[in-house]
Design a protein around this nucleic acid. Structure first.
Length: 456
RNA sequence: GUGGUUGUAGCUCAGUUGGUUAGAGCGCCGGAUUGUGGUUCCGGAGGUCGCCGGUUCGAACCCGGUCUUCCACCCCA
């Protein structure tokens, strides 16, 4: 009995139209990456487990897909480990490889391994799928694409400015106007933790703060208490909950709050400089905002942090993120290489563009013309015409058999062909053909002896 | 990983307190129309009701398990 086929949780098939739409996004992103001087690389879909494990925190490790060793791997495990039934000690012995979890850590590995061939600063982009053993939800999949651009070996804040501009250029080109680029700085978060006397609770402090827009001030404070912060510390952090005014006023409020913290002030000054640079150049459609509660994906960021939110009214998690990480390659033994990068979430951008109806109509057209088939001598003449037009670069297909016209036209309809070509016995006799526009219904006559007069 | 939710035709969904042969709309195929599609009319095909097991004379419906979907946590693109 044949089994019913199914797809693993969190994965999807893509139809021709969906692939065309995804390619449209990818092509747009690539075009702008290259315009800004980034070069493409690719890395394997799986890495050695030790390359990935421990880089994303405990939570991240849990979400990494581990690949079972091949061969008789159980017999190689010692009895103590085997009988302990402890996944954390057993797993490393039977899974020596794992699917990549993002593109940044494999990139860091790449940089370290190829450091002698690379001309620094190295600007690379990478568009490949990543895998996470997460529980799927809307816009969260177990297999999804990331589109990353990073620069390593350049400490200048000019890099951050370029990335903001790149975000703006790409989202504008995709027709996705009104995106918000939220910006924060790890140094500000560290500084705040320092001045409120919660230096050792930095992570607890930021994780709770990050939820401000979602659960509100009271609940955030409650969570901070629960996470071990003192009431006094929370009280001192009050100005964070009351940031107001335009961005430069917010910078002033932060400076006041952080006046005792060298690192905190440094963070504010960095963002201020980025902001001033961006202001000078101007953005096309995106808005750059300061968001001191932004703290996600904090694991390896050390400086600026970015996150992009879709235009208002679209319920979707962030569609892009990034930041500066000063010592990512350090874990692989290469010190003092500063890096900064951004990422685009292809799958989420797709969902947003779909929801807003922003995909160009043209993408659903896979053919410029369909040539009908009337059989006999006309079929040969039609095939000849089709081949000539293909050689000229047109996307043209010929119906493979002399089926009823009704059927052939219905097929043209379904394929969303803008125009069909008729070349039957009647036309052949006069050395002609007819071109019918499928949306207007208009027909025009062309000459077989001068096809370029019709097709150009 | 925790708690909840969902699954019936290709798609969107009905289906009464458990009771003969499980329905609709859209789509699909054929005809009206042998050289003109997207409109209309007529006809037709298509389902082991997610899967496995249990209760019952009898299960789409009740119970258990499992997979899937979506949601809230966790975390994140």
């Amino acid at each position: 009995m044949p089994q019913k086929p199914s797809l693993p949780k969190g994965t999807r098939d893509f139809s021709p139209v969906e692939v065309a739409k995804r390619q449209h996004i990818i092509q747009t992103i690539k075009k702008h990456f290259e315009r800004y001087g980034f070069e493409p690389i690719e890395t394997p879909s799986f890495e050695n487990s030790e390359t990935l494990l421990g880089k994303y925190g405990e939570e991240g490790d849990r979400l990494i897909f581990k690949i079972l060793n091949s061969g008789d791997f159980i017999s190689k495990v010692d009895d103590v480990t085997y009988s302990s039934k402890n996944s954390t000690t057993l797993a490393p012995k039977i899974t020596e490889r794992a699917l990549r979890y993002d593109l940044t850590v494999p990139f860091a590995r790449y940089v370290v391994m190829h450091q002698n061939e690379i001309a620094f600063p190295f600007k690379r982009y990478q568009i490949q799928p990543v895998w996470r053993a997460d529980r799927p939800q809307k816009g969260r999949f177990r297999e999804f694409y990331q589109c990353d651009a990073d620069v390593v070996g350049a400490k200048s804040l000019l890099q951050e400015v370029e990335f903001v501009s790149l975000y703006d250029a790409i989202f504008t080109d995709l027709g996705l106007e009104g995106c918000t680029i939220k910006m924060n700085n790890r140094k500000i978060l560290s500084g705040v933790a320092e001045v409120i006397g919660a230096k050792h609770h930095l992570i607890d402090f930021t994780v709770a703060l990050d939820k401000l827009d979602k659960i509100g001030e009271e609940k955030v404070k409650a969570e901070m208490l629960e996470r071990g912060l003192s009431a006094h510390a929370i009280e001192r952090a009050a100005p964070l909950f009351q940031m107001e005014g335009d961005i430069s006023q917010q910078f002033e409020q932060l400076k006041k709050l952080l006046s005792e913290s060298e690192i905190g002030l440094e963070g504010v000054i960095e963002l201020e400089e980025i902001y001033n640079w961006v202001e000078e150049g101007g953005l096309q459609t995106a808005k750059l905002e300061l968001d001191v509660t932004l703290a996600r994906g904090l694991n390896y960021y050390t400086g600026a942090i970015f996150e992009v939110a879709a235009p208002e009214g679209v319920a979707m998690g962030s569609i892009g993120g990034g930041g500066r990480y000063d010592d990512l390659t350090g874990i692989f033994g290469l010190k003092d290489v500063s890096g900064v990068g951004i990422s685009f979430g292809l799958d989420r951008i797709y969902l947003v563009l779909e929801e807003l109806g922003l995909f160009p109509e043209k993408l659903t057209q896979s053919l410029d013309y369909l040539c009908l088939n009337f059989g006999g001598e006309a079929e040969k003449a039609a095939f000849e015409l089709v081949m000539k037009l293909r050689n000229q670069g047109f996307r043209i297909d010929m119906y493979p058999s002399a089926a009823k016209m009704q059927k052939q036209l219905k097929y043209a309809d379904k394929r969303n062909v803008p125009a069909v070509v008729f070349l039957g016995a009647e036309e052949l006799e006069k050395r002609e053909f007819i071109v019918k526009n499928m949306s207007s219904g208009e027909q025009s006559v062309g000459s077989l002896d001068n096809i370029t007069a019709t097709f150009q």
